[in-house]
Design a binder for these strands. Structure first.
Length: 106
DNA sequence: AAAGTGACGGCCG
DNA sequence: CCGGCCGCCACTT
């Protein structure tokens, strides 16, 4: 209900900084917030994503490169299509972080 | 105010 | 190589 916290907008802002054809892990975002342990919280924030159509939350994957976004039912397939559309090769819902993980300022 | 939850990460077996 | 357990934070009820 309340989203007046400072962390949430920070996460969204970082999503907008993700270059085309790249993905980010929760870990990277957490570190961007200031602490790796915030990774869990980052997931909650993306789940609270008020504008999933605008924020590239589908570009966010876990440390294993596996898509973890639960876009309703089967929305995961759509996310995969989106990533492939950006030139990202997704196999078995897994992306090659070695090639697509955007480390940002980290 | 306290306890529980979660779109996770890392380590151990 | 793969599976399972614990730990961390902020948010919710």
């Amino acid at each position: 209900m309340n989203d007046n916290k400072n962390y949430r907008p920070k996460v969204y802002e970082y999503l907008l900084t993700i270059p085309y054809g790249k993905v980010v892990t929760y870990k990277t975002i957490a570190i961007h917030l200031g602490d790796i342990h915030l990774a869990r919280y980052v997931g909650s924030v993306l789940h609270s994503n008020p504008r999933p159509d605008f924020y590239p939350c589908y570009k966010v994957v876990n440390s294993k490169g596996k898509l973890a976004i639960n876009f309703g039912d089967g929305g995961l397939t759509i996310q995969k299509e989106r990533l492939e559309k950006e030139g990202i090769v997704v196999i078995d819902n897994i992306v090659d972080l070695k090639k697509y993980e955007y480390k940002g300022k980290l």
